[in-house]
Design a binder for these strands. Structure first.
Lengths: 321, 321
DNA sequence: GGCCTGGTTTGACTTTTGTCGAAGGCCGTG
DNA sequence: CACGGCCTTCGACAAAAGTCAAACCAGGCC
């Protein structure tokens, strides 16, 4: 597609201003337009990712706590969002951090798997725009048509839009009513192709869900709160990409899981960089399960959660020795 | 190494300002410092690459001319710096563009080979700072101790400094007086290791030198202008990483080349991304030679040079058909 | 202890940038 | 061809950011 003249101007203005360091009025006279227009073009350039302003997230990895956690849980990298005193909203803080970390982890040519949830959508919503060309964002699990604005396909699309990337979503329900139908659907070429493509991803972004009545699975009607309670008593510890896992991070053997259309945990584990983001303190056990299952290599959490994880890790190794 | 408190503050200020979008006075009151300090911290943050402002160089690849050149010369990507009307200084323009392109091509964990020359040093000098952690910059060829400020080791070091990367330079002379000594020196473990490490680079940055009396090789006394003229009559077409190549981009069979300590062209060609930058219009033949020898995959040139290259390519294919 | 020295920090000032309503074009439509 | 909607551009004003000399502080040295 040819670049529209307006876009040319935005590029030129951004180039002169940011690369050459001219002032806005100098840019304006170079391009024979008013300074106010330059200001507008520059705003657009920032909004569309033509210019990219990113801040290093080192501060949050360089923490002692973060280092200890990396060692204790043998993760590749951990970022810890502060939660002390005057941080207005810790969960937003975590999302902002996660968005930055995510953008730092994305490389050109990457294929990115994205799951679904409030956290992921919040990150997508906060994330600044970038101009990665040949990036593909794929949806990791089927849809939950629901009164929610953060459906799986929405998460995928929004992130793709922000990155200027190609979005690949598939429109299968997350969960079907019979195992038979799920099996048949998984065998469908379109679906099978999508699911097998997950293993070729370079980067994954997801959170972990809790197994309680507040879970989206319950809210969206995929499970009743009674069923959820039952699964819980049978060892359910968390939800990853729509699937229920036990405390070891293995897929729980249950009818629900067999009725789900989603990427297999094995293909998730095949993704080199798996970024997990957890906002809520209440998701301690689910997170432990996900970590136990080797479902994350990179982790973004709040300070309180980080402390709990470290305490827990310390306690278990102590017991072991 | 522990982060100094001052650096912590820079990080925090940058984070609040750029990631959260607070105003400077809001940042100031959050951190209990004056707004002026915040402004200073932010400048430092930009200068040290803690925040990264980069503008897409798409504008310069999306050119029709650039596309045609990519096809005609079968290069991976070509960037063309405009040279029309009110561009004050085309060669600076090319360097600025090259610096941006270079930064766009660098990925984390890369090993980067850097050659030497006025162009490369100018790029290094203009290039903005970045905070790549595990990047290594290696020197591609021996040193020319000389009254020049852009010696090979300087280029390497400066680029490493800007990227916050590790610089690996080796202190051997570029050219020795006897072939024997050169052979012996190349066999030295330190040198051999460095030279063999070149093949493992992911990215190379160099320009091409002309074979005339203005060449650095002559200016630095490695060759007399008489010798240079003689080599020229024997088919010398350009200089790459200190070595003289013929019109086909092959190493010229001559005593000088045998006395040089530098990366072999074969190991240069083994580098996946080879960014060549040419500023001077006079380097047309040397550039042709380098391209013929497959020594570049990515090219940054001025508009006039681009046009000449395209005309030339058109002429040769016409003749061939 | 007094006294430099180098680097921060500050308040006051200047310059630059963001924004807004109004005016000006451009294009498709009636 | 006039009209209205939509987007761009403009000038002027308000807000924000950059800058600088002076004050300040800590640490090393006499």
């Amino acid at each position: 597609m040819a670049i529209r003249p307006a876009e040319q101007l935005i590029h030129k203005a951004a180039w002169l201003y940011y690369a050459h360091g001219l002032r806005q009025d100098q840019v304006a006279s170079q391009l024979n337009i008013s300074r106010a227009s330059v200001a507008m073009y520059l705003r657009k350039a920032r909004e569309t990712g033509i210019v990219n302003i990113s801040t290093s997230t080192q501060l949050f990895t360089d923490d002692v706590l973060a280092r200890k956690l990396e060692d204790a849980l043998s993760l590749d990298a951990v970022w810890i969002a502060p939660e002390n005193d005057h941080i207005a909203d810790p969960s937003t803080e975590i999302a902002v951090l996660a968005a930055s970390v995510f953008l730092e982890l994305v490389k050109k040519g990457d294929r990115i798997g994205v799951a679904w949830g409030r956290t992921v959508y919040m990150i997508a919503d906060i994330m600044s725009y970038a101009d990665l060309q040949d990036v593909t964002v794929v949806q990791l699990c089927g849809n939950l048509g629901a009164p929610y604005s953060y459906r799986p396909d929405q998460c995928t699309m929004e992130i793709a839009r922000r990155l200027n990337a190609k979005g690949l979503n598939f429109y299968a329900p997350l969960v079907l009513s019979t195992e038979e139908l799920a099996r048949a659907l998984r065998a469908e070429p379109v679906i099978r192709e999508q699911l097998s493509g997950v293993g070729e991803c370079d980067l994954a972004l997801y959170s972990v869900g809790a197994v309680d009545a507040d879970s989206h699975l319950v809210k969206c009607g995929a499970l009743t709160s009674g069923e959820m309670a039952e699964l819980r008593s049978r060892g359910a510890a968390g939800v990853i990409a729509g699937q229920i896992i036990d405390a070891d991070g293995k897929v729980l053997d249950c009818s629900y899981n067999r009725r789900v259309i989603s990427a297999e945990l094995a293909s998730l584990r095949a993704i080199a960089r798996r970024l997990m983001v957890v906002q809520e303190d209440s998701k301690f056990e689910p997170l432990l399960a996900a970590i136990a299952g080797g479902l994350c290599t990179h982790l973004v959490v709040g300070a309180r959660m980080a402390q709990r994880l470290l305490d827990h890790a310390g306690a278990t190794t102590e017991k072991a020795s």
